[in-house]
């Protein structure tokens, strides 16, 4: 509309006649088109600015930290402090604050430690990875992300059902949200969908009676662009504390 006015004023000064542009509908549509073009250009520029400004800056860490697993009072946890086949949910956050992980000491139906081998885990979507296997004196302690790979449900909606329990999920990790089931004895691989990805495994080391976490293998932690972004870093650079949910 601005453009049209200017054009008219120009006409005015040049030919001293202010003609309503009805006479030449082609000229009028051209001016309209230019107007639309200019408005479009302005919109595109503003939209780009708007979109870029509302995408938040990414937060996270740059590499996987090496952290010792400690209890709530800051003492390194021992194998004895973990119960075999514990129904209580034991969690620790790694590598970011909003990335909870299960810590499990796996046993058989009689409550004896089971040695967990390192295996190649095949995901239903075709990808695969090598699980780190169990750690500790009995090679029975494993850890994985506690965020369901289907839609991101977290404990207590997703939890471990020890093999000492009865029911279809005994010895499995099951998510109540949409029924995804994982096998912690086999690198947290998928037992039933809807998920198509295993739970990301936490790489642990066992050294002088202490448990350390140093890496993640497998799929990306659910809801995160990468394992290391999409959340605040942990407060400590040397340890991460375990906590429980009933």
């Amino acid at each position: 509309m601005d453009l049209g006015d200017k054009k008219d004023i120009k006409n005015d000064t040049k030919s001293e006649v202010r003609e309503p542009s009805v006479k030449d509908s082609g000229r009028r549509s051209f001016i309209k088109m230019m107007g639309v073009l200019a408005v479009g250009a302005g919109l595109a520029v503003s939209l780009r600015g708007l979109v870029q400004s509302i995408i938040p800056a990414s937060v996270g860490v740059t590499s996987f930290p090496d952290l010792t697993l400690v209890d709530q009072s800051g003492n390194p946890i021992t194998t004895d402090s973990l119960k075999v086949n514990d129904y209580t949910i034991v969690l620790f956050n790694y590598p970011l604050q909003n990335e909870p992980n299960f810590l499990l000491r796996l046993g058989d139906a009689n409550g004896n430690d089971v040695e967990i081998p390192s295996i190649t885990v095949h995901n239903p979507d075709g990808s695969s990875f090598t699980s780190p296997g169990g750690k500790g004196p009995y090679k029975s302690v494993v850890a994985s992300s506690a965020i369901c790979e289907h839609l991101g449900c977290t404990p207590p909606n997703i939890r471990f059902y020890p093999p000492t329990m009865t029911g279809p999920f005994a010895g499995k990790i099951h998510c109540d949200c949409h029924g995804s089931t994982y096998d912690p004895y086999k690198g947290f691989q998928v037992v039933t969908g809807p998920t198509v990805l295993a739970l990301p495994n936490v790489v642990m080391t066992y050294d002088n009676g202490n448990y350390k976490v140093s890496n993640m293998v497998g799929p990306t932690i659910h809801g995160h662009p990468t394992d290391l972004t999409g959340g605040n870093p942990l407060s400590s650079t040397t340890s991460t504390a375990i906590y429980t949910l009933s």
């Binding site: 938040p56 800056a57 970011l96 965020i147 449900c153 999409g230 605040n232």
Partner: peptide, 26 residues
């Protein structure tokens, strides 16, 4: 978590869409 999974599944721009609606994870 479900909403952000759906948003993040948007082809090509999933992470940006997710971040616009649900923030950067904090």
């Amino acid at each position: 978590s479900i909403g952000s999974t759906i948003a993040a599944g948007t082809p090509y721009i999933g992470n940006a869409v997710n971040a616009i609606f649900f923030g950067n994870g904090t």
